[in-house]
Design a protein around this nucleic acid. Sequence first.
DNA 1: GTCTATAAACAGATAGAC
DNA 2: GTCTATCTGTTTATAGAC
Lengths: 173, 173
Amino acid sequence: MTKKEKILEAGLKLFATEGYTATSTNKIANAAGVSEALIFRHFLSKEGLLSAIVKEGESAFKNLYTPILKESDPKEVIRLTIALPLTVPESHYEFWRLQFRLKWELQSVNHKKSQPLIDKLSWAFAELGVAHPKQEAEFLSDYLEGLASQILLGKEVNKKKTEEFLLLKYKLT
Amino acid sequence: MTKKEKILEAGLKLFATEGYTATSTNKIANAAGVSEALIFRHFLSKEGLLSAIVKEGESAFKNLYTPILKESDPKEVIRLTIALPLTVPESHYEFWRLQFRLKWELQSVNHKKSQPLIDKLSWAFAELGVAHPKQEAEFLSDYLEGLASQILLGKEVNKKKTEEFLLLKYKLT
DNA sequence: GTCTATAAACAGATAGAC
DNA sequence: GTCTATCTGTTTATAGAC
């Protein structure tokens, strides 16, 4: 692993656990086993490092839900959406914790980012003859947001049982 | 209003909007129209000020949901719980934004804080003959958490329509 | 209670050697 | 690419006068 990668790794870890503002470049350098100046050589500024980290993994979200947008079976659309927060591997938690943290720490909330998914969900519910498809889609989306928060904040969640419950609730079994 | 109260008010506002770490005591003093030293006179440290702010409003959460715990009609329990995030006046948003922010910024997450409410919800669902009352309670709680997040992060939510939809969904009309 | 002045540590960032 | 040394402004916090 190059020193640049070590900085990215240490930055992700510290930003995700301690927060962006609360993490000094000095702390990152120590954690990465690197001189502080190297951070600025590679990323110009502390914000540059943050951008690089966010960018590096930003496609992750799109990659996660684009298969759903392409799905043509409405039941499968809902099934896959439900599985979203429940199948993310724990090794990715750090990255996602950072994303959720940044929503609150910086004002960088992009409500439109999940709009394509909500629209697709809305389509799926309509297809299945559900009464208020748009509101059902918003409802499910908000629930999954809440569930993801709880998981990332360390609440014990039985993922298997939760998924079974949801599949039953949405009549997908 | 005393200067101490002015500090508390400015602190709440700034911590809620900019975050705890990103807000300097100097900024707070300026916003409150007070010398910086006065903050330390009254609250000993920056963290002391934070504690005072959190404590001052901590009972707010309890006061919000204790009426629900005392309710004996299961339908009314669910109705009141749903109304929780939808009836908080916008003037209280600042305080709640701070609470949500702190969950991520400090590691001070108290998952047990909402447990009494979840237990009561679970009781209500059981009383109404719902199949998986415990999981239904968790589900509703997570949804409301997600909804509250969205609202506090500035998403446009039609509260009236949302409440109508939920009352219909939970067969409370 | 409240201020001015200031200490001491720490922040992000740069210069220049290797 | 990587380091040591250092600059400059800011941060939390205190001392002491009123």
